[in-house]
Simulated assay, not measured.
Amino acid sequence: MSTELTFLIWSAALAFAYVLVQSTAYRLDYGIKYAGSQRDNERPPNKWAARGNRALRNFLETYGIFIVLAVATELSGRSDGLTQWGTQIWFWARWVYIPAYFIDVPFVRSGIWTVSMIGLLLLFVGVAF
Rank of each mutant, 00 (worst) to 15 (best):
L5F: 12
T24Q: 02
V68T: 10
I98K: 01
A70N: 03
E42M: 15
V115L: 15
R27T: 11
W48G: 00
V96N: 09
F16N: 05
I32L: 13
G111F: 11
A25Y: 00
A70C: 05
I9H: 13
I98C: 04
L75G: 00
I89H: 13
T114C: 13
I98V: 10
F59K: 03
T87R: 08
Y34H: 11
Q84T: 05
Q22Y: 01
I118F: 04
E42R: 15
L122D: 04
G52D: 00
L75C: 00
N41A: 15
W85M: 08
I89N: 13
A72D: 01
E4L: 06
Y26T: 09
V127K: 01
D104A: 14
I67V: 15
G126S: 10
T114I: 15
V21T: 06
W113D: 06
L122A: 07
K33D: 15
Y30T: 04
P106D: 04
W48H: 05
Y30A: 10
D40G: 12
G31S: 06
W10T: 15
A49W: 07
V125E: 07
V19G: 02
T87L: 04
L28E: 11
D80A: 09
L122M: 14
T114G: 13
L8F: 14
G81D: 02
K47W: 09
N46G: 14
G64F: 05
F66L: 05
W90Y: 15
Q38C: 08
V68E: 03
P106E: 06
R57C: 10
V125N: 08
